[in-house]
Amino acid sequence: MRAIYKRELQSFFCTPHAYVFTGVFLLLGSVFFAVGNLAAHSSDLNGFLWNAGYLWMLLTPILTMHVYAGERRAHTDRLLFSSPVSLWGVSLGKYLAAITVLGLTVFLSLIYAGLIAIYSRLYPGEALCGYLGFALQGSAFIAIDLYVSARSRTPVTAAIWAFGVNLLLWLADVLSSAVSSDLLQRALAFISPYQRCVPFRFGQLSAANTLYFIAVSALMLFLTVRTLDARRWREA
């Protein structure tokens, strides 16, 4: 697993993927921060974290599109499947490499919290909690999009499908406040990764929501392993 992790991380930084992911995130994040905090003279990080949460929907497909679909197209998956590494080892290695890039991006975005701490007043506990929810949300998106990549034949289709799935999750969030049925509203709010982030933004370290994000990641990793295994039975 360590070898896979190292190679995947190296690959992210030897190709434009990690730079585009982090660069675009920081660029758009800066716009949100400039508009929501600097121009509005606000020290509240909530708005920034809420808006930045939507960036995952747009950017995680860029990071994950090549991870499995690229290997499949370049036939490098043959090397992994014929080596004495388990499919869990492969999947975890790749997931953790993507999480490392995500973690680095989240870490770099702490600059906004730092600016608020220097020029205004920051509540560290609340900010850290907000960032934790934000990172957990991103890690769930990564796991979902990696699963989509494992199911796709080419990186472009992986990116399109991943974006589509992310969009559906956003729709679940939008619809959860629009539908009249209480049951449907609760069901949509349950699956929405955006609603799950709300308590974190208000400084509540919610065990249920933390568990939700971890469970989504674990489920997607499991499905990824099953998909890779199933391919050994189906493919020519």
Binding site: R2, A3, I4, K6, R7, Q10, S11, C14, T15, A74, H75, T76, D77, R78, L79, L80, S83, P84, V85
Partner: peptide, 19 residues
């Protein structure tokens, strides 16, 4: 099964780690 972005040395090291 080659990774174009890697050097030959890095690739062979990776293959050794896998094995």
């Amino acid at each position: 099964p080659l990774y174009d972005e890697m050097t030959v040395r890095a690739y062979l090291r990776f293959a050794c780690e896998l094995k």
